[in-house]
Design a protein around this nucleic acid. Structure first.
Lengths: 138, 138
DNA sequence: CCCTAACCTGTAATAATTACAATCATGAAA
DNA sequence: TTTCATGATTGTAATTATTACAGGTTAGGG
């Protein structure tokens, strides 16, 4: 089990208290938090933290491949400590974003129509189990 | 060939000069324009048009299913007169968004993990043909 | 032709993100 | 261990996308 500090070092990132706390938060909260959610959560233990730090840190985490991001809701970016390709489901009622595990569709490919593919994002939107009216569950 | 006016009427939308021009622009420009791109383009012929009108109009077009939207770039919404499900490719170099036509993957489904699916969005990101370095084309 | 609901416009408010300058901390080298 | 330069953090201000709202305008049924 690599320490968070070592994982930063591996990516050529300098270690800092803030970076460790942000990475730790993402590792423990696989809820696809937004910048604001991360900020609000960390502020309690780390009242001096700045939102700019969150933005800068997430940017460097993204650039080094330490985390991934998604833009399923259309009006804000969400962050994810899971970096292996996987799909997401957005509930249009409660706003929850879930990881989709049962999709085995071969959408990971090197090119489409002659364009070089580096990332694939598969997003589902609809109503999650909890928001489906009783008796209409699938 | 239905007139734009008739297509608005069909959806229960009142016809107006602005709405016709916006729909016409989307029909003729399948480049996935942003609100700003539509505004800048229409301003020339229609100097009095307001950006709020573009927002309101696109919102009513979306609600009635006259157009579709996508958020592939992560920082702005794009609009598309094509309403049949199809995938998109974003070039991370030039920012162009292309329709993807050669994907036949069965990602249209009614549910995933017990959640009810209403929309599926498949986004590819990478380098488009034009931005690929010569000799590395695929 | 009139009237009202619906639409359009401009301004102001909000929200997400980025820019920037000053301060502070990490970690390599002395 | 101390020093020090580089890079990180912070707060404020600027920017950008979007929404709220109020007042004037227009489509289209009667």
């Amino acid at each position: 089990m690599k320490s968070l500090q070592d994982r930063l070092k591996e990516k050529g990132l300098r270690s800092s208290y803030q970076r460790i706390k942000i990475l730790e938060y993402l590792e423990k909260n696989r809820t696809h938090p937004t910048v604001d959610a991360i900020y609000e959560a960390l502020k309690e233990k780390l009242p001096s933290i700045s939102k700019t730090t969150i933005y800068n840190t997430l940017k460097s985490f993204l650039e080094t491949g330490l985390i991934s991001d998604l833009t399923i809701s259309g009006h804000e970016v969400m962050y994810d400590a899971e970096t292996k390709p996987h799909s997401h489901f957005l509930c249009k009622s409660c706003g929850t974003v879930l990881d989709v595990v049962d999709i085995k569709c071969p959408h990971v490919r090197k090119e489409v129509d002659g364009n070089k593919v580096e990332e694939v994002h598969l997003y589902f939107k609809g109503l999650c189990k909890k928001c489906l009216p009783e008796g209409r569950k699938q």
